[in-house]
Nucleic acid binder design. Sequence first.
DNA 1: GATGAATGAGTGTTCATTCAT
DNA 2: CATGAATGAACACTCATTCAT
Lengths: 190, 190, 190, 190
Amino acid sequence: MRTRDDKKQEALFLATIRVVNEIGFAASSVSKIAKEAGVSPATLYIYFANKEDLLVSTYIEIKRSMGAAMLEEFDERAPVHDIFHRIWRNTFAYVSENLEEFRYAEQFSNSPFRDQVDMEQLQEYFAPIIRVVNRGVEEKILKDVGMDMMGVFLIHPIMVLANPRHCKGFEVTEENIETAFRMAWDALRL
Amino acid sequence: MRTRDDKKQEALFLATIRVVNEIGFAASSVSKIAKEAGVSPATLYIYFANKEDLLVSTYIEIKRSMGAAMLEEFDERAPVHDIFHRIWRNTFAYVSENLEEFRYAEQFSNSPFRDQVDMEQLQEYFAPIIRVVNRGVEEKILKDVGMDMMGVFLIHPIMVLANPRHCKGFEVTEENIETAFRMAWDALRL
Amino acid sequence: MRTRDDKKQEALFLATIRVVNEIGFAASSVSKIAKEAGVSPATLYIYFANKEDLLVSTYIEIKRSMGAAMLEEFDERAPVHDIFHRIWRNTFAYVSENLEEFRYAEQFSNSPFRDQVDMEQLQEYFAPIIRVVNRGVEEKILKDVGMDMMGVFLIHPIMVLANPRHCKGFEVTEENIETAFRMAWDALRL
Amino acid sequence: MRTRDDKKQEALFLATIRVVNEIGFAASSVSKIAKEAGVSPATLYIYFANKEDLLVSTYIEIKRSMGAAMLEEFDERAPVHDIFHRIWRNTFAYVSENLEEFRYAEQFSNSPFRDQVDMEQLQEYFAPIIRVVNRGVEEKILKDVGMDMMGVFLIHPIMVLANPRHCKGFEVTEENIETAFRMAWDALRL
DNA sequence: GATGAATGAGTGTTCATTCAT
DNA sequence: CATGAATGAACACTCATTCAT
């Protein structure tokens, strides 16, 4: 028998991201994605159970790689401020260099497909961050305001700022990134 | 195309919001929206040029009413902090009380339809806010960081916090709102 | 608005029968039936909810017209033998003259769609026959063997004999029909 | 194509019957049948030329075994009545005990695949019965009405009565079988 | 102004079959 | 001998839009 080609799965992920970003979630059809990936629509169904599975799997794959990128060179023993600074810059780098993936994730999480994803599982990728937040609160460095609010002022600003779609006026320069981080840190710190 | 029977146009706006929120952008069809509004699909084309026009117009209508709500009791002569506090609470109130409209806008602005909207025109609704920001910078009350960053730390947090879809752990209580505002203000102020 | 065209429903019934008889149940597709009827596949869905509805409705329509044909000139007060003779000849005439309809019904009732039909409702068309059978039993003219067996020896033989597909050697002549009826009557009578 | 591993061929026959009976002719696909048989779809094509060959071969196989069952303990020298009685009971037994096979054959012979079968060859299985009918006519025991009519009143009733799908009200008891045979015999005998 | 009928183009998905291993 | 991968063609069905009334 022919052997399964991992390249095709990867190609389908990339094609999904490209097509969804270009024409939007609503207009993205299985046949367009298959064509973009250079395979037959029927072949797609060998690698994914159905359209939803394709979209959800693509999202999870992005989240996984994003989580890994955010935690690069993560050193749990460093000062909270430095860890956050590291994560902040990692995340900025990831979003800037993987804008397509990031935009896909954004569209996905604003679609009803979102409810099909096991969020608990996704949270695992970000567990170390949560531990640092808790440590920061214990050490009286961070405001004790719950995890959601931390995300809103620490992670979310990056998502918006790094996305030229939202912030046409924000240039991703060394200086601007540091300024933005200072604002985030001002919001979070005690 | 526009005509006198404003009730039908209003009904179509509401139906669009309801349908899109319930089954998502991708699955929302003209005929389903028409049925929800209690009119024939053909009638819809009397009020809107096509599906895109319907979706875009609905979005603009929401943005208009949202802008008005945010600026309620706006007093340009009050202190910058108080104006922002007022806007912050207005916005929270609007989002909480108009979750459906808000969610529609969120889905819309994460779709490629976004590019069909004349953003310049939308900005007008929020012009007074921009003037206050500029005043705050001049008065050395606010960091001088450009309008995008202001939006990211002032407006965006509300959008996320008030949306239970994103923040299941955040309860919209008096206390939490004030805490969050303090964080936003810490981020913005000099 | 355009007005609904009853001719199209009729055309779809006929097209269904023709296509199913020509290429079989399994190979009959909605698009082939629509093409045969001279309408777009999409139009078909205005008149029928889905493929199953089309097939089932066609079957019920046939059964209705067949029941009516079998009971033509039905006179409940005539002798049982004469009534049966009349029904027998009516049925033979119907099957011979409506072979296509009959064959469709045959294929249908040997398909799993059969289970989608409300058989109780169909039985109504044949209620008068059942009453005559009961009378024949009471009058000690017919064997008291239950309704199924009556059907097997009275109705079923016609279905088979009149269908050249099954009985290539049976010519539908006056004499042969009478001979066959005598055999059926011999089977049924006391 | 045929090969030595008769177990797989047998498994495919059985799988075909099971699948077709469960989901119907139209919905039965090669891959579903292969899965039911526990082999790959590709393997199926080693044993059968194509889907049609599989379906037709399954039918012929059933007809062969059915013919053999009907003629069990066949004694050409016995009285015509007794031979018929024997065949009648054999057939009833076969249908009752092989309902799945029988139903498959029924569906098959009501589909256009029927025309793909060499009927002449099938007739061979039933040749002894034909000889007995001819003898009965010569001996003035049976009506001289042609072979088709004999089949209609002798074989067909069993097919219908033994199939609970058609005759929900007929219980396959010793007594009912004998009663039905008497009716068939009354129809046939002079 | 308002509508149900109508449709070509498209949807997601499965099909029977072939091919490389 | 046996197989999972691969696909063009087809499937049932829905779409956004137009048309006749």
